[in-house]
Design a protein around this nucleic acid. Structure first.
Length: 888
RNA sequence: GGGCGAAUAGCUCAGCUGGGAGAGCGCCAGCCUUACAAGCUGGAUGUCGGCGGUUCGAUCCCGUCUUCGCCCACCA
């Protein structure tokens, strides 16, 4: 470290760009498929090309990067496969909005030109999230970056579609599906988000034919009455039994429709009479099938009433509702309106209320795919383990109740369905290569299905399509199945479940060995972050103001399993301070390591102090804990352990302890101190690197000594070292630290300013303590700021001294001129009361014969010890208090 | 309607397999002690949501209730 002054405050910005560029350009992120090292692979949940980095991405990718950096340093051949998703509906929406701004729609420009325009948009602005992931420090193998619509992945999609079709697992059917009237496309069941809303139940009178009775039906959607083709009652319902087989006349429409009986009708609900609209309700559709009812579709694809709606044709569905209610009211067909809450389905892309809509769509038959995907997570040793376990239950429930997957979408941006219809024979041709003639009759009058595949169809193949499938590639051989999938629970069904099905079916093995499901990032109040609420914290703004490392560390420290993260900005500031603390500890070290070369140092020859042994021992324990925690995805525990070690032990204690050695003249001691300082810091930086990649690299590069690698990200991750375990020394040091703390406590309580040096007498009750305290005299002198220290066996307490007890050491601080007698009296009183409580508690516990008899012997012994210790201390304090009182 | 999760210091949260609770921020007191005031030292604060049960012993296990949150579900 040169004479150049290092800034007191860590400035992340330049450091981050500098090192990221270095890592990437040197190819440190690149995985070699032919490496001899054991593989560790993760495929990134590909962000949408329309995406900008939000908190969810930041958390997700930070957690992945921590794993990747940790494993890479631990000797694995790490592949983190990156890429982006074409995000069919979302991306199409973006470009359609652009067109709308120009006063056009996609039909004006035509399919080909529209798709060209989407590609153009992708080229210009589709990659920004990749740059943002880089700012986050993501160590992805960018050389392998893929896109769900690139050539290779499109080939995988085509292959999968054809094979499933050939196996009879893909079929076409005409049934009710969820339809978004705004996106003009079908949606799968899970793409519909249900939300509870306050609505109404309208009770409508349907006059019974040939009678002056009316049947009253309750409905939440009165406008669909235009498509009613029956009313239904429960066959067991005595109220209506006589009317079954009869008919009613549909108001406004004047259509005569039958009264049918069906078990589906709940007698308890509403009036026990249900209007049946097979074209616009999933239940009614089933009822209609059972009873062979007509299906009258009254909407067009935009949710506007069509010709079947007679006088209401051309009205938007909600306008039609208002009008129809008004008309029914006017004609006395409306009996009453009651409040009713219902779960309305909305499009997950645009929130528009979806419409059950009859149409011809493509489906994947999932039953046979789901079975092995279910089996793979079952048992004590599942092929794929889901963390935390609670999510396994969710996965299982969903897989067990899985419905066929509607995969066709009526949009233009996506993988076009490789099916051609013959105008001659009407047969379908599905092939790997675009056909020119019908596969059945040879006619050239074929045309391709206009629909594209659900975006999640290609996502399902991601773990193997990105590695070159269907070819047999070295990547697949080396990295499939992947080691781990890190993702949020919101796409457990959309994505994880489908990757499982596809992976097992096409690769013959699960796509990943482990799945780690992390939580959602919310605001400090626990609200979901959303633009409309205005509570969004932008990760990039956070990075700008606090630095990437602080931000990453915050996310890791918050990432407790199974719990959402409530992110408050103050916390990030707290970890920014932590980064700064590391920075300043490094400044201290570098200043004191000037001219020091650790390489020739023989560790075995060093004469280590108690404090040095203690910090080495604690480092070893921290190493052990960090590795163990990361192994179990306990990111928060790993982060908190490192935080505590760094700040409370390394900085607060060790650095302070080291000063007297570093500043002293004993060259042998100095050498040991420098070595330990260098060693612990060097190891600590490696431990922290997966969490805080930039600052650790910046400091690490300036440390003296020969580097094991050109970058800290390639240096071996610390593992515990047997030659650095000092359990005994560590315990001893803790005793010394307790004495120092006790002296500081007197100082603090007595308000003795740090500038005022004091005299202290230590009275030890054992020879062990005596030699320990003598041995660590220097530490006590400097850390407790003591000028005059006397240490002896069983020293009589001076009359006018303040007392503290630490283990079997009594600490006397002569009062005269320093301590206020009243203050001391108060302090002692407080301490005594505190002991009284514990003594009382322990006494009662030990008096309880069933405790003494039944509790394990070691627990009882421990409690006895504690009682004796407390009683002893209390007695000392009591004596001291009496003496003090005499002084008054 | 089914399932899951949460309730711990003023706030945000830890607390792995039961032996009378921790952190950060905030608060109080004293400090510019030559790495760091984004800092140092000391201190205060909790019927661990309520009620039962199991146990020698429960923040932790079981039951139940209350209050929040989430997921799934075709009750019109």
């Amino acid at each position: 470290m040169a004479e150049k002054e290092i800034a007191k405050i860590y400035e992340p910005k330049d450091v981050e760009t500098k090192w990221y560029r270095e890592w990437e350009s040197k190819g440190y992120f690149h995985a070699d498929a032919l490496s001899a090292k054991p593989p560790f692979s993760i495929v990134i949940p590909p962000p949408n090309i329309t995406g900008v980095l939000h908190m969810g991405h930041a958390l997700n990718n930070t957690l992945q990067d921590i794993l990747c950096r940790w494993k890479r340093m631990s000797g694995y051949n790490v592949l983190w496969m990156p890429g982006t998703d074409h995000a069919g509906i979302a991306t199409q929406n973006v470009v359609e909005r652009q067109l709308a701004a120009e006063g056009k729609n996609r039909f004006d420009v035509g399919r080909e030109a529209f798709i060209a325009r989407v590609w153009q948009w992708k080229k210009e602005s589709g990659g920004q999230i990749i740059g943002q992931l880089k700012r986050l420090g993501a160590s992805c193998d960018w050389e392998r970056e893929r896109f769900t619509m690139d050539e290779g992945l499109s080939r995988s999609v085509r292959e999968v579609f054809v094979r499933l079709f050939e196996d009879g697992l893909i079929y076409r059917d005409n049934r009710l599906i969820n339809w978004c009237p705004r996106c003009h496309t079908a949606l799968s069941d899970i793409e519909v988000e249900h939300e509870e809303q306050k609505g109404h139940l309208w009770y409508l009178r349907y006059p019974v034919t040939g009678s002056d009775r009316c049947l009253v039906v309750a409905t939440t959607r009165p406008e669909t009455m235009l498509g009613d083709t029956a009313v239904a009652v429960n066959p067991a319902d005595d109220r209506y039994r006589d009317l079954i087989g009869g008919s009613v006349r549909l108001p406004l429409v004047n259509r005569e429709i039958p009264i049918i009986a069906d078990d589906y009708v709940d007698m308890e609900f509403g009036t026990g009479v249900v209007k049946i609209t097979p074209a616009h309700d999933f239940n009614d559709f089933e009822v209609g099938k059972r009873h062979n009812l007509d299906i009258i579709n009254v909407f067009d694809e935009s949710g506007v009433i069509n010709a079947a709606g007679g006088q209401y044709e051309g009205m938007e569905r909600f306008a039609a509702r208002r009008r129809i209610i008004a008309d029914l009211t006017a004609q006395a067909f409306l009996e009453k309106i009651t409040d009713h809450t219902l779960a309305l389905g909305g499009c997950y892309r645009c929130k528009t209320v979806v419409e059950p809509y009859l149409s011809l769509q493509w489906y994947v038959k999932v039953k046979s795919l789901a079975e092995p995907a279910l089996a793979a997570v079952m048992g004590d040793n599942p092929r794929t383990r889901i963390y935390p376990d609670q999510w396994r239950r969710n996965y299982i429930d969903w897989m067990e109740n899985i419905q066929d997957w509607c995969i066709s979408r009526q949009i233009w941006w996506g993988h076009r369905i490789p099916a051609w219809y013959c105008g001659q024979c009407g047969k379908i041709t599905v092939t790997r290569v675009d056909p020119v003639i019908c596969g059945s009759c040879g006619s050239d009058g074929i045309r391709q299905d206009p629909d594209v595949l659900d975006t999640w169809f290609s996502s399902a193949l991601w773990p193997f399509s990105t590695m070159g499938w269907p070819d047999k590639t070295p990547e697949l051989a080396a990295f499939y199945p992947t080691s781990c999938m890190v993702t949020g629970f919101d796409i457990l069904f959309f994505w994880v479940a489908r990757m499982m099905m596809a992976g097992i079916h096409f690769m013959g093995d699960v796509p990943f060995r482990e799945v780690y499901i992390h939580a959602l990032v919310r605001d400090a109040q626990g609200q979901k972050m959303s633009k409309s609420k205005g509570n969004v914290i932008d990760p990039l703004t956070v990075i700008d103001s606090y630095g990437t490392d602080a931000f990453r560390f915050t996310l890791a420290a918050f990432a407790a399993q199974g719990r959402d993260i409530k992110l408050a900005e103050e916390r990030i500031a707290g970890y920014r301070n932590f980064a700064n603390k590391i920075w300043n500890a490094a400044r201290f070290a570098l200043m004191n390591l000037e001219g020091f070369d650790p390489d020739p140092v023989k560790y075995e020859d060093l004469r280590l102090s108690e404090g040095e042994k203690w910090i080495l021992h604690r480092l070893n324990e921290t190493v052990r804990e960090t590795n163990r925690a990361l192994d179990d995805y306990r990111y928060n525990e790993a982060a908190m352990g490192l935080y505590q070690f760094t700040w409370s032990e390394f900085c607060d204690w060790y650095l302070e302890l080291s000063k007297k050695e570093l500043y002293g003249d004993d060259q042998e001691r100095k050498r040991a101190a420098r070595y330990v300082l260098w060693y612990v810091l060097e190891q600590l930086l490696r431990l922290l690197h997966p969490f805080m990649p930039f600052i650790t690299e910046e400091i690490w590069q300036t440390l003296p000594g020969k580097k094991p690698a050109p970058s800290i990200m390639l240096a071996p991750y610390p593992t515990p070292r047997d030659d650095r375990n000092f359990p005994e020394a560590a315990t001893n040091m803790e005793k010394v630290m307790a004495v120092i703390s006790a002296i500081r406590n007197i100082r603090g309580e007595m308000e003795v300013p740090p500038s005022k040096e004091i005299a202290v007498i230590l009275s030890c009750a054992s020879s062990e303590s005596l030699s320990l305290m003598k041995h660590n005299e220097g530490a006590i002198l400097s850390l407790a700021r003591v000028a005059d220290l006397a240490i002896g066996r069983d020293i009589e307490k001076p009359q006018d001294a303040s007392i503290q007890v630490a283990g079997d050491v009594q600490i006397f601080v002569p009062l005269r001129g320093i301590v206020n007698v009243e203050e001391e009296e108060k302090r002692l009183g407080k301490e005594i009361t505190r002991f009284d409580k514990d003594i009382d508690f322990l006494g009662k516990k030990l008096d309880n014969t069933s405790f003494v008899e039944r509790a394990p012997a070691d627990v009882v012994a421990k409690e006895r010890e504690k009682l004796a210790e407390f009683t002893g201390k209390r007695r000392l304090l009591e004596e001291s208090l009496e003496k003090i009182r005499k002084l008054k």
